[in-house]
Amino acid sequence: MSYNNILTNSKEGICIITINRPKKLNALNQETITELHQAFKEANDNSDIKVIIITGSGEKAFVAGADISEFADFSVEEGEHLAENGQTLLFDYVEHLSTPVIAAVNGFALGGGLELAMSAHFRIASDNAKMGLPEVSLGVIPGYGGTQRLPQLVGKGRAMELIMTAGMIDANTALNYGLVNHVTKQEELLPVCEKIAWKIMRNSSVAIGAAIHAINANYKDGVDGFKVEIKEFGNCFGTDDFEEGTSAFLEKRKAEFPGK
């Protein structure tokens, strides 16, 4: 499928989705959000794709924020719909995909850009990355999950400070905060992400999807994550991947997981 604002490239089990609006520093508009949803859905539905990497084109920005020109004149109702639709279509959707999603954060990841990166399962940053949620400087708050995911990742106090000051942090500070897992040189960013993706792909995709579900359950109000873990653990016993994984272990050979 062809897109106006993103590029997709799939090879050897990895799908790289690149937001491609360099003149706008890859800012998210509604069309881009819709295209990203479709690209993530296609990758997740493709049994040959085992890991998805999301990044931004060029050297300046992962995503510099939302396209403010689209909603500067919105009413209260329109603003609420914008946040709800965006969260449902993209940010919550990405977080709950059964296919692992790695955010390769190159350059600026601000506002909706950082919110997109935080919706991924984990993040790798280039050493020139700058991250922040500057929404309060515009008289609004993060609306794509930023007030929820940032405290989960860095703690309440640091999240409060970052959001209230509308400030930016560099890649090494983000690493210290636990916002990103690794920092690397910009030219090594995608190769490092792909190296991690290869490590992931050695394992059962069915079990990884179950693990994602169980981990995310811990962050849902009214859901007992331990019970979800027990259920998913039990479900694994009924899969071909479990049969292959245990047989390979006992036979002292490398597992060849069928992914079902």
Rank of each mutant, 00 (worst) to 15 (best):
P22T: 07
G157C: 13
L189F: 02
L153A: 06
V206D: 05
G146M: 02
T34R: 05
Y177D: 12
R202H: 05
A66T: 00
G13E: 07
V228W: 11
N46S: 07
K23G: 08
D73C: 13
L36Y: 09
A61F: 05
E251P: 00
C236F: 14
R202W: 09
H37F: 08
I230L: 12
E188S: 15
Y219Q: 07
G238W: 04
A248Q: 11
G139S: 08
I33S: 04
L97C: 08
K50E: 05
G112I: 14
G234R: 01
Y219M: 08
G58Y: 15
V228G: 13
Q30W: 10
I200W: 03
G132D: 02
I212M: 10
E31I: 12
L28E: 01
A255F: 02
R158I: 11
G238F: 06
K227S: 13
I54C: 02
L162F: 10
V105M: 00
N5W: 07
V140K: 08
A207V: 14
V51Q: 03
D67G: 07
Y219C: 01
A159V: 12
S2V: 13
L110I: 08
E244T: 07
I215H: 15
T246D: 03
E135D: 10
A109I: 00
S137D: 09
E243T: 07
G113M: 04
L114M: 14
G234L: 01
L36M: 15
A64Q: 09
F62M: 07
E115V: 05
Q87S: 10
S57M: 14
A27P: 05
C193Y: 13
F249N: 04
F62P: 09
E78F: 01
L179V: 03
D170M: 12
L82F: 15
L7C: 13
I212F: 13
E95Q: 13
N176L: 12
I33L: 09
G157R: 13
G79I: 11
K254F: 08
R123K: 13
V223H: 04
R202S: 01
A27G: 03
D221G: 06
K23R: 09
A103M: 06
S98D: 04
L97K: 06
F40I: 00
I124Q: 07
E135R: 06
A104L: 11
E95V: 04
I52N: 02
H121S: 12
G234M: 02
A27W: 10
A104E: 09
Q38N: 11
E42I: 14
K50H: 11
L97H: 03
E84G: 11
A104T: 02
K50F: 06
I54N: 01
I163S: 06
N29G: 14
E70R: 05
E188R: 11
V223N: 01
S10P: 00
F242D: 02
K130V: 11
N106V: 10
G222A: 14
R123L: 15
N44W: 00
S204N: 03
G112Y: 12
